[in-house]
């Protein structure tokens, strides 16, 4: 397993831990809409993470083989975020909008913290 796929595996593992925490919060606490929003945002965030993984891998493959890569999939990810927010705005009684936004940022926060920790570890 390469360093790259190991990293993605670690990130998705941490995201799934956070998702499990949110599901537990949805089941146990009375803040149903807040945790449902967090779950929705985190699921879309995970899809975004895998989309970035595939596209970056494809660009790397294209660079090695000397071919062309068509896109990095930025528009797909923006549209997915917009879809999550549209769902939250369509059903405001089930999803809390601000928590959907926080959920969308979960993987980015994990990537930031993990990369800082990795840098400190290998310093």
């Amino acid at each position: 397993m390469t360093e790259y796929s190991q990293m993605i595996r670690r990130y998705s593992q941490y995201t799934l831990y956070v998702l499990a925490l949110f599901v537990m919060g949805w089941g146990v606490t009375s803040y149903k809409s807040v945790f449902l929003g967090l779950i929705l945002g985190t699921v879309f965030s995970l899809i975004n993470l895998f989309s970035t993984y595939r596209k970056v891998n494809r660009v790397g493959q294209a660079a090695v083989e000397g071919k062309k890569a068509k896109s990095l999939g930025s528009l797909t990810r923006l549209a997915l975020a917009a879809l999550a927010v549209a769902i939250a705005m369509r059903y405001p009684e089930s999803f809390h909008l601000v928590s959907v936004v926080i959920g969308l940022m979960v993987t980015y926060i994990i990537i930031l913290i993990d990369s800082i920790l990795q840098t400190l570890r290998f310093k």
Binding site: T52, V56, A81, A82, V85, I111, S115
Partner: peptide, 26 residues
Amino acid sequence: GTLQTTMFIGVALVEALPIIAVVIAF
């Protein structure tokens, strides 16, 4: 592998801001 890892972190962190912008626009 190393360069892709760095690129992934860079792309992810750069794209966080436009996602927030899309959300704010909506």
